[in-house]
Write a protein that binds this DNA or RNA. Structure first.
Length: 250
DNA sequence: ATGGTAGCGGTGCTA
């Protein structure tokens, strides 16, 4: 991750697609985002920001076109958790950066919002498939897909990140025809993207895999490699998430 | 062990 990990901005997770980044939880309004820092590095910038919480962006050294902000399906939803842009200049990709609701405590209104948001995401994911443009859905999904994606799955059984309804909603999106890029490349258990700040989770490797890149068939056909940059979790003042990335053929 | 830590924004919420 050549740029984002060295910045003093609260990037909780970064996905890299060719030369593109999709950070979540930027926790800033559009006007406060460090545009100059990234612009000086040659990035084009598209932001869906929000004061204090949430916020997503797409940064790319390739041109960005047709930027849209917000997840369709609920005009009353004012949380900045979704942005799309078409990355051009190489092979065209529709890139979506998403910050899926955490959903805790469950049950409750936050969990209801999470599940409703995931139903809307499924509808948008299906509509994007119909375009037949390669699609990458990148972000913090706040979903642990399987037991092997948690060091201590028993600790998560009542948590919104692992409840059966959350995992089923994630699978429904996959079953539309999307590929979990990291899992397709690496079947080993114990590969995590998040370690809590509390209770020495990083020192104990008590992690979970909740940051994912889902690829449409046209994008999956171009998948060269995928990985998780776990080492940066050991940096000074790290995010609790680490970058998850894919390399796609141009 | 129902805590623990971090960021934001201004002392409690969200994760």
């Amino acid at each position: 991750m050549p740029t984002a990990s060295g910045e003093h901005i609260p990037i909780s997770q970064v996905a890299e697609i060719q030369y593109s980044l999709g950070p979540q939880e930027i926790k800033s309004e559009d006007t406060n985002f460090p545009r100059e820092a990234f612009g000086d590095l040659g990035y084009n910038i598209a932001i869906n920001g929000q004061k204090g919480f949430n916020g997503v962006a797409i940064l790319s050294k390739l041109p960005l076109e047709d930027v849209t902000r917000g997840l369709p399906g609920d005009p009353g939803d004012d949380q900045a958790r979704w942005i799309e842009a078409t990355v051009t200049g190489g092979a065209t990709v529709r890139l979506c950066a998403l910050y899926l609701p955490n959903g805790n405590p469950a049950p409750g209104p936050k969990y209801d919002y999470k599940l409703a948001w995931m139903a809307r995401m499924k509808a948008r994911a299906a509509a994007l498939l119909a375009t037949e443009v390669p699609v990458v859905l990148a972000g913090d999904y706040n979903v642990i897909p399987q037991a092997e994606d948690a060091a201590r799955p028993e600790a998560w059984v009542a948590d919104a990140l692992y409840l059966p309804e959350s995992r089923a909603a994630f699978r429904r999106i996959e079953y539309l025809g999307y590929t979990d890029a990291f899992r397709a490349r690496d079947p080993r258990p114990g590969q995590y993207s998040f370690w809590d700040y509390q209770a020495g989770a990083w020192a104990r490797n008590n992690g979970i895999r909740i940051d994912h890149l889902l690829l449409s068939p046209q994008a999956a056909d171009r998948l060269v490699n995928a990985g998780i940059d776990r080492a940066v979790r050991g940096d000074d003042k790290p995010s609790d998430h680490v970058p998850v990335w894919v390399e796609l053929d141009a």
